[in-house]
Design a protein around this nucleic acid. Structure first.
Length: 183
DNA sequence: ACTACGATCCAA
DNA sequence: TGGATCGTAGTA
């Protein structure tokens, strides 16, 4: 099957990585040993130079992982009850990452993965995984290679749930996929 | 110490 | 459309 994606894949500009992540296989080994694999079908890009990014105002305790070089997970807690998963991209010192908004499950008995917080709840992704290495399966979280999605199958829209820089078309999803979180 | 708010979700 | 729910960051 697929091989684990290496660090070089993530150490590129965020918009490129975001689109390249579509179709790849998000893999999670649960604390009880159960394995989940699902195709990434919806993402959003965030970078330090636009105000909706958590790293926009500089390093804080919460966002420091965003400033690492690509290939680690940034998991944050929000709305008092939810977690969201980002894949950190680009080079050290520049806050940037890709929010995983939805996957299409194909291995493991999981269903509610069509939303960033639902995905984390279903896969037991919490702050314990914040900063973990996603290029090594011992972390319990990694991504495997798969066919590249051609540009004509990718839809770009405005990002969801933000109030700043709303005009940027930095949300990407695979056309006609029924697991997309919102239209 | 005090306050406002959030890259969400779900019920109604 | 509004409520749940609380860590974080900004202000004092």
């Amino acid at each position: 099957m697929g091989k684990i994606i290496k660090k070089e894949f993530y150490e590129k500009d965020t918009l490129t990585v975001a689109k390249n992540l579509l179709g790849k296989i998000l893999c999670r080994k649960m604390p009880n040993g159960e394995i989940y694999k699902g195709k990434i079908i919806e993402v959003e890009a965030y970078t330090q130079d636009e105000p909706s990014c958590h790293g926009f105002g500089g390093v804080t305790k919460r966002n420091s992982v965003m400033f690492q070089s690509g290939g680690v997970a940034y998991v944050y807690f929000t709305y008092g009850m939810y977690h969201c998963l980002n894949i950190i991209t680009d080079k050290e010192g520049f806050a940037s990452g890709v929010l995983i908004r939805a996957t299409e499950p194909f291995e493991g008995n999981f269903k509610n993965t069509n939303g960033p917080a639902k995905l984390c709840r279903e896969l037991n992704i919490t702050k314990e995984l914040n900063g973990c290495d996603i290029c090594n399966e011992t972390s319990g979280l990694w991504i495997e290679t798969a066919r590249k999605i051609p540009a004509e199958e990718i839809v770009a829209t405005e990002r969801i749930g933000i109030k700043k820089a709303v005009e940027l078309p930095w949300r990407f999803y695979i056309k006609n996929n029924k697991f997309v979180s919102k239209k």
